[in-house]
Nucleic acid binder design. Structure first.
Lengths: 266, 266
DNA sequence: CTTGACTCTCCCCCTACGGGAGCATCTATA
DNA sequence: TATAGATGCTCCCGTAGGGGGAGAGTCAAG
């Protein structure tokens, strides 16, 4: 039997953390004195603790770890780990891009140039109406991939085929919210039936965004500045057209996205 | 002049976030109505907001960003960014190692083997006393690199030379604490003067840990299990000897660290 | 039997916001 | 111009993963 302090030293985890893990039921001491509340651990629990630490290093949340170690379903563990490795690999790529961008920015700083120079070219145009098939729901930007998958599934179920690029329309006229926005994902189709709709926002300002989606807000900022300069006012739901995306290229640096904002003049 | 909602849509940042940034003084609206408290932004502030978002994507905290954008010292910005890129690169490498380990673990799961198998070989030995030159202070594990730099600086200032590997001695006999532990970093020397001390912990159990330091706690857990099995009790400050570290190899997978825990028998 | 080390619970703190209540204000339309 | 509905305000609470510290109780060695 080890006191919490001894156990703490052997597993290199702070006493605070051990008490926290006890509280949330992640790892409870073998014995807790009813009178004094003192926690006593067994050396065997070091193994369990090491597993917890390893899963933590894999970025599982404590709740996830709790689930994973208290079940015997090795398939669940396997599936979760596959998911995490995929996340890590994704992050590996995005970190590499980020480092590249940081080097770029540092060069700019050395040359006394501002990091952020809005170099999006903005134009105004009457948007040529398109016929779209879409799904609309509350979602986060991170769910786009899955939502597009499901969209294409439904598309084929309905016997349709894509006839052009896909779109995201930001229907949310209220607060913009990163985690829970009212978004319609859609794709151009040739058919005209009751499951499709005509997307006809009218006069828009637009710009082309090249590169990964991480800097997409800069396109919106450019549109905002342009509207200010030209006395235009927002007029409806902005939308994005993914002209070159993961379907066309593996390298996010080559993505091309058209960003549109419907406008009106007072 | 843009209301907070309009500004929010143009910079793709939630209203909540904008109010938060106002509150902490990161970006304040150009005009705030004294009567109503309504916030009004200028489109020019989109530029500032984009800079904030970019720095945020570089993992600066909001406080750091506040400092960086409200100073004109481009050297500070440059230095901070260099630091961050270094961090990202470090993370890139550690992520790659992590992915490798996850693949390994997944293989083990598929073969129905437990992920954590304590395969450290533990032995007991009388530690051969060594003469060390060290600095002792409260620090975090993350500060080791810098602290060792400073240690070697002092070493040379005192006209000494390293005569063996370096050590970390965990003096903290109280709570183990990740962020603030009482640690003595030291290096073997040949001289015997009042600035050096004899490190003579006596009987110890020890094990060799191979690989990066991320899994070092497993070595401690192994020592803990061994002590349990052999009826030994902890007896003083545990310490690590870095036999093969970044000085000898570039690949953390090849690191070799001796982990010692002084013991006594009751 | 004392003393110092250890442990307990409880409460507040951190980051970077999100949710929601309750109320005020703005603006487009009738 | 009246009014409804959209938008805005402040205030309070919650999150994850603990850290810091107060105040009180407990354990073990001399």
């Amino acid at each position: 039997m080890l006191s919490i302090g001894e156990f703490s030293k052997l597993c290199r985890v702070s006493v605070k953390t051990l008490r926290h893990y006890d509280q949330i039921g992640l790892i409870k001491p073998i014995h807790t004195d009813r009178q004094t509340g003192y926690r006593y651990y067994e050396p065997q629990q070091l193994n369990e603790m090491m597993l917890i630490l390893r899963l933590k290093s894999y970025r599982f949340s404590l709740q996830e770890i709790k689930l994973l170690i208290h079940t015997d379903d090795s398939n669940l563990l396997l599936a979760s780990m596959r998911e995490k490795t995929a996340e890590f690999e994704e992050e590996l790529a995005s970190h590499a891009r980020l480092i590249e961008q940081m080097r770029n920015d540092m060069e700019k700083i050395k040359r006394r140039k501002p990091i952020m120079e809005m170099n999006h070219i903005v134009t105004a145009e009457e948007f040529r109406a398109v016929r779209l098939f879409g799904v609309r729901k509350m979602m986060a930007i991170a769910e786009f991939d899955a939502a597009f998958q499901s969209l294409f599934g439904k598309l084929f179920q309905n016997g349709m085929k894509p006839a052009g690029p896909s779109y995201a329309i930001y229907r949310d006229e209220e607060n913009f919210n990163h985690e829970n926005t009212d978004i319609e994902l859609a794709v151009e189709v040739a058919q005209t039936d009751e499951k499709t709709f005509l997307h006809d926002p009218g006069l828009c300002c637009m710009t082309v965004h090249r590169g990964s989606y991480e800097n997409l807000h800069e396109a919106y900022a450019s549109l905002g500045m342009w509207m200010q300069e030209h006395g235009a006012k927002p007029n409806g739901a902005p939308f994005e057209r993914y002209r070159i995306n993961c379907e066309q290229t593996d390298n996010p640096e080559n993505y091309e996205t058209d960003v549109y904002y419907p406008i009106r003049y007072e």
